[in-house]
Design a protein around this nucleic acid. Structure first.
Length: 599
RNA sequence: GGUCCCGUAGCUCAGCUGGAUAGAGCAACAGAUUUCUAAUCUGUGGGUCACAGGUUCGAAUCCUGUCGGGAUCACCA
């Protein structure tokens, strides 16, 4: 049970006794730092019961909590003192209580992780197109998806990480056609290019050629709109898509080959990002799903058919528009497929939740998806969650693939690691490490900087990614947290050299203020994980970790650990440090960030 | 035009299930060092929480409206 719950119960009982009345919700909160105390009860809502002033009510309640029961036991044994400021009753708990909490969290090997729930949750993320390499926007997606999956695991759920690859359609045909026309048989092996980059280059090449042809047509007097539809290369690519759909072996073989290059390239990027998947779906295999659902909807009368045979759902009563579900030629659209895959997934895995990590440009789509599934009568429609995230902008301007100023994921990763290495070297942090160790630390720090910078921001907000600031090793950054962890580990190693183990039971010692603050923060960790899991919010974890690190740094600065002469106090500080390191490591682990033992 | 999201310090962001004097980091300035790893710590200056109403004992937080920014409303995915 959390401390807050426990105190709330005590308070409810006390209020019941004092005022002879039942109280429901109490407003218990952490005491603000400028006041003395650990928890604060807001008494304003209780005035109706007490029929006294806020100050009197708080005072009365505080005195009662400190007094003894009929059996001689204190009403609230863990309470040391209280003070009243305006209507706020500040409760200060005994240091021995905090010491005891620290001991019990130390004894819990799974501190912060919940017991298995038996529930299975699917997190779909990444979901790239196969015509170009991953970029900055994908990085936010992948990091969010992975972190959310880890959070859900920490909350005791079984998690299926899924990737739905958009491997079909006109976009990949464009790369294929350009490769046929201009490629001279170039392969990743022959050119030394990463497969996804190679295919992406031909996508760019196609667009160049297309622009050129449109310009030529316009020069000959064709109106712009017509020119854009008549460019020969466009007609060719449309023909290619028709052939693909007709399963033309030449086209399908080329499609398989080039997609294979792309997948090999993606794997490298995924590995560098530290993300992975339990299940990969390909749209070429799922795009026909959902048609039977459309028929069901028609039978139930929740969808309707237009004269041309197309099927629609009318959502105007829900404040939305009419939405197409089946084209007039009977083929399905994106929405149809998503209806089908959702149903299939819930059936296949008996999911209790399905989380889609998809950019906010698809907010409308997921709103509709959920509504339509509800109209079809699926109870699990409410278990669909769209984790929507905003665009990542750059200092120079907005990043959008259409505008061509994309930041390539592989380039960015490489730059981050190289910068981390350079800065570590300048500070002499790599001295004494061999090449493999230096490379490993640089990788952890560079990726930590990138991941932390992106994950600490509320997903739904448009964020600004400043490469310079992200690699700034001061402040609320990944490297700062990693560094604190490494420093604690260093102290613990030195302690071990002195023959001090950190596993012995704690002797009763008086905790100082900073130590109590640390224990309090550590105590928040399990509840934080629970909340972050519920809200699908890695940012919550990131900002908590930073708070913990800041608090520890103050403690570290103000008090010595190894030089402390009182062995019991020294032991306490070692154990406390070890626990801080453990929690940092776990919290960062939830964000997919590695923490080095030394740096 | 409809729907959704955002607007907090010069900059990047926390805080939002209503509570005390709105917080960090960066940048600026002033300090601290025989390092337990200073990639640290302390201090100073910096705010009409976009604006206006409303609810409340109490609003950055909830409601309504206005302004500003973004996304979306395809027989694309």
């Amino acid at each position: 049970m959390t401390i807050e719950k426990r105190i709330t119960q005590t308070l409810q009982a006390a209020i019941g006794k004092l005022y002879n009345a039942e109280v429901g919700e109490l407003q218990l909160q952490k005491t603000r730092k400028e006041f003395e105390g650990d928890y604060t009860l807001v008494t304003f809502p209780l005035l109706k019961l007490s029929k006294k002033s806020p100050e009197q009510t708080a005072q009365e309640l505080g005195e009662y909590l400190l007094s003894a029961n009929a059996d001689g036991q204190p009403v609230m044994p863990e309470l040391e003192s209280f003070n009243v400021i305006k209507g706020f009753l500040n409760l200060k708990l005994k240091p021995s209580f905090w010491l005891q909490r620290l001991s019990s969290s130390l004894a819990d090997a799974n501190f912060g992780y919940a017991a298995p729930t038996g529930k299975t949750v699917m997190v779909e993320y990444s979901s790239p197109n196969t015509n170009k390499p991953l970029h900055l926007g994908h990085i936010r997606n992948n990091l969010l998806g992975y972190a959310v999956a880890e959070l859900l695991k920490a909350n005791g759920h079984k998690v299926v990480k899924a990737n739905l690859i958009n491997d079909r359609g006109i976009h990949i045909c464009k790369s294929m056609l350009a490769w046929q026309l201009f490629g001279n048989g170039e392969t990743p092996q022959s050119s030394g290019k990463k497969g996804d980059h190679l295919v992406g280059d031909y996508y760019v090449r196609y667009n160049k050629e297309y622009q050129k042809q449109v310009a030529e047509l316009e020069a000959k007097g064709t109106p712009k709109d017509d020119a854009e539809k008549q460019a020969p290369i466009l007609l060719e690519v449309q023909e290619m898509l028709r052939k693909w759909e007709a399963k033309d072996t030449t086209v399908v073989d080329l499609w398989k080959t080039m997609n294979g290059w792309v997948y090999a390239g993606f794997d490298v990027t995924y590995k560098a990002l530290g993300v992975d998947f339990d299940k990969v779906y390909y749209e070429s295999e799922t795009y026909l799903l959902g048609k039977s659902l459309v028929q069901q909807g028609l039978d139930k009368g929740v969808f309707f058919k237009k004269e041309d045979g197309s099927v629609w759902v009318d959502l105007t009563n829900d404040g939305l528009d009419q939405k197409l579900l089946l084209r007039s030629d009977g083929t399905s659209v994106y929405m149809t497929q998503d209806l089908g895959t959702a149903q299939q997934r819930f059936a296949e895995y008996t999911l209790s939740e399905l989380v889609y990590v998809v950019g906010n440009e698809q907010n409308y789509h997921f709103q509709v998806l959920k509504l339509v599934l509800k109209k079809l009568g699926f109870e699990w429609a409410d278990s669909l969650h769209h984790l929507s995230y905003g665009m990542v902008e750059l200092p120079e301007g907005k990043m959008k693939s259409r505008e061509g100023t994309v930041v390539d994921a592989d380039d960015l990763i490489e730059t981050m690691v190289a910068d981390a290495r350079e800065m570590s070297q300048e500070l002499g942090k790599l001295n004494g490490l061999n090449e493999a160790e230096a490379a490993n630390v640089s990788r952890m720090v560079g990726m930590g900087a990138l991941k932390y910078f992106i994950l600490k921001v509320d997903p739904k907000k448009t964020m600004l990614f400043d490469p310079k600031e992200s690699i700034d090793f001061n402040g609320n950054t990944g490297p700062f947290i990693q560094y604190t962890h490494a420093r604690i580990k260093s102290v613990l190693r030195k302690a071990e050299e002195q023959g001090l183990s950190v596993n012995t039971a704690l002797k009763p010692v008086q905790l100082n203020a900073k130590e109590v603050e640390l224990v309090k923060l550590l105590e928040d960790f399990p509840e934080l994980v629970r909340q972050a899991g519920e809200e699908l919010s890695p940012a919550l974890v990131a900002n908590y970790t930073y708070e913990l690190v800041k608090e520890y740094n103050q403690f570290y600065h103000d008090y010595s650990i190894l030089r402390e002469e009182n062995t019991d106090v020294k032991q306490l500080r070692l154990v406390l440090s070890a626990q801080v390191a453990t929690v940092i490591k776990r919290a960062m682990g939830l964000l997919g960030i590695d923490v080095p033992e030394r740096m």
